[in-house]
């Protein structure tokens, strides 16, 4: 790797991160930098370590070694999920995960930035943030379904609701895992537009298999393979990289 830049002005800074499960090296000396306001697409074959990387950043898994810094100075490896989330890192799961027995409205209400303690919740007064929820509902095109239980939404709508919940969280960095899996072409194009819009105000990392979608996003691409960075650059640049072709076709 080339010399590492100073982590000071980065949004997310991973350096030499390794983790293994029962002898299997899921991440191997991974280094990655996301600048504030940057949107990055991460691709790679199955088992390349994409989801594990997300687990590490969001505090679900601890690295065996390596540095993970947020905002240039906050050590994420010492924090739990809730702490990392309140720092301003939002995560969207591969499988859409919303609170199915709550209404769309309540899902967004729970995600809204604010105090997270149990006593704050107990004495929370409803109704103060209705404007904010209405505007998010508008953004994710679910205004008409706001009183419906999230469990009865379609697959694509659940994906959007989850993205809406992330917006309500007002994160500085958004981690999005396969947002268009199982979406129709129209929904996919719409999602790409939504993500680009979101990326105007914050950093976004998107993990995706769908190459058309990655092309739609039109951002810098990083290719992961066997737990470390194989190649990065524009989509055209990495597609031309013989090592990337080898990995994708050689399987």
């Amino acid at each position: 790797m080339s010399t590492r830049p100073d982590p000071q002005h980065t949004q997310l800074y991973l350096d030499g991160v390794s983790v293994s499960f029962d002898g299997f090296r899921a991440l191997n000396n991974l280094s990655l930098i996301i600048m504030p306001g940057e949107m990055r697409a991460i691709i790679g074959p199955n088992g390349a370590g994409k989801t594990t990387m997300m687990d590490l950043i969001t505090g679900k898994t601890r690295p065996d070694k390596g540095t993970i810094l947020f905002d240039g100075d906050t050590d994420l490896t010492q924090m739990d999920e809730a702490g990392i989330a309140t720092l301003g890192i939002g995560r969207k799961f591969q499988k859409p995960t919303v609170f199915e027995s709550h209404t769309v409205w309540d899902n967004l209400d729970l995600a809204l930035a604010g105090k997270r303690g149990p006593f704050a919740s107990l004495f929370h007064r409803d109704g103060a943030d209705d404007d904010r929820i209405l505007s998010i509902l508008d953004t994710i095109r679910l205004s008409a379904r706001r009183h419906v239980l999230a469990g009865s939404l379609s697959h694509g709508q659940k994906q959007w609701l989850e993205i809406g919940m992330l917006l309500a969280q007002e994160p500085k960095l958004l981690l999005v895992d396969e947002p268009v899996a199982g979406m129709t072409d129209a929904e996919t194009a719409e999602t790409a537009r939504l993500l680009r819009e979101i990326a105007q105000t914050r950093s976004v990392v998107v993990v995706e298999h769908d190459m058309t979608f990655v092309r739609d996003l039109d951002v810098k691409v990083t290719v992961l393979h066997e737990g470390s960075v194989l190649s990065d650059g524009s989509l055209d640049h990495v597609s031309a990289d013989p090592r990337v072709i080898e990995v994708y076709l050689g399987r």
Partner: peptide, 21 residues
């Protein structure tokens, strides 16, 4: 209360609730 809604959220999707902070 909102606490109750968080409880149901925990019941239905614990790790989602955690990642919401």
């Amino acid at each position: 209360s909102k606490l109750g809604r968080v409880l149901i959220a925990i019941r239905d999707a614990e790790s989602r609730t955690r990642f919401l902070g």
